[in-house]
Design a protein around this nucleic acid. Structure first.
Length: 309
DNA sequence: CTATGTTTAATGCGGG
DNA sequence: CCCGCATTAAACATAG
């Protein structure tokens, strides 16, 4: 019998699917991308339920990452130590939980079936496609100052990068809530449409989520480097602002059906736009050297020990 | 070797 | 009841 304590609630299974949990984790960090291990950590840090049976749910989680198109892999730069890639959300997957339920999406996000304007013999579309890509990258550059490391064939689809954020957009849930000592949170409550009330309760009361102070200390589950993002971009520029674009992660989804033309794509773009890790790395050497992987897990560790009891 | 990824298959569950 | 999404298990590949 779970004794009536603070943990009673916390150990129940959170009302989120692995997909939403993962999305939360990813959205929670400024870079909008995380390595697998950090995703695990995020989840375990705030949802005690997932501190057990790790083998089971982590396998499921990995399955989800690979299986769902809404997650994309971002390669590590050579100067990024560690195993595995970073995981990010597909730029055009939008708010997958607009329907309000974090357990079940109304529709599985499927990458626009790779209409493969390239593979298909559609020269007209192809050029358009390429132009789109170029534009995307340019705007990315303009807003974030990011230099892209690797462009792969990747379909952004037509849907815009989602400008308006739902009150229940993952960002808003994750967004550090402005806590009041009482444990309540300010959110967009006041102006919340009636239909959202129920969920709003969720966002305010999260019995499953470790919030208080934990959020504040453990939230910056940032990369080993606190100064630079995965691409050596100063975090400050990417940081904060849910509106910041997802750091324009450059996906590397190993889109199965060949991608021969990618090389061609590169060729058509200004060199600085299509910098691949292998090719001339524009990254100043000092950037890489600045921080080693001296990750600091101390905080969360102590927190966990607290929660265990 | 372990962590990370990819895939397939079975099963559960909810909504239309 | 069927379809589609989610969960779980498990085999297998690969990278560090």
């Amino acid at each position: 019998m779970p004794r009536p304590g603070r943990n009673t609630y916390s150990e129940q299974k959170p009302p989120y699917s692995y997909i939403s949990l993962t999305a939360m984790a990813i959205q929670s960090c400024p870079e909008k991308m995380l390595p697998l291990s950090e995703i695990y950590k995020f989840i375990m840090d705030r949802f005690p339920y997932y501190r057990e049976n790790t083998q089971r749910w982590q396998n499921s989680l990995r399955h989800n990452l690979s299986f769902n198109d809404c997650f994309i892999k971002i390669p590590r730069r050579p100067d990024q130590p560690g195993k595995g890639s970073f995981w990010a959300l597909h730029p055009s997957c939008g708010d997958m939980f607009e329907n309000g339920s974090f357990l079940r999406r109304r529709k599985r996000f499927k990458v626009p079936a790779t209409p493969d304007p390239v593979t298909q013999n559609k020269p007209a579309d192809t050029t358009h496609y390429l132009q789109q890509q170029a534009k995307l990258r340019l705007s990315a550059l303009a807003t974030t100052g990011t230099h892209l490391s690797q462009m792969n064939n990747y379909n952004f689809g037509v849907s815009p990068p989602t400008t308006f954020k739902h009150p229940f957009a993952i960002e808003n849930i994750i967004a550090r809530d402005y806590k009041i000592p009482g444990g309540l949170t300010f959110s967009t409550m006041q102006s919340m449409p009636a239909g959202y009330q129920i969920h709003n309760q969720l966002t305010t009361a999260w019995p499953h989520m470790y919030n208080s102070s934990v959020m504040d200390t453990a939230a910056p589950i940032s990369m080993p480097s606190a100064e630079y993002s995965a691409y050596g971009v100063p975090l400050k520029s990417l940081c904060h602002g849910a509106q910041t674009l997802p750091a324009i992660p450059v996906p590397i989804k190993a889109t199965p059906p060949s991608v021969p033309r990618l090389a061609a794509l590169h060729a058509h773009l200004p060199a600085f736009l299509s910098v691949s890790p292998q090719s001339t790395s524009p990254t100043p050497p000092h950037v890489a050297a600045t921080n080693s992987s001296s990750t600091t897990h101390s905080m969360s560790a102590s927190l966990q020990s607290v929660a265990v009891h």
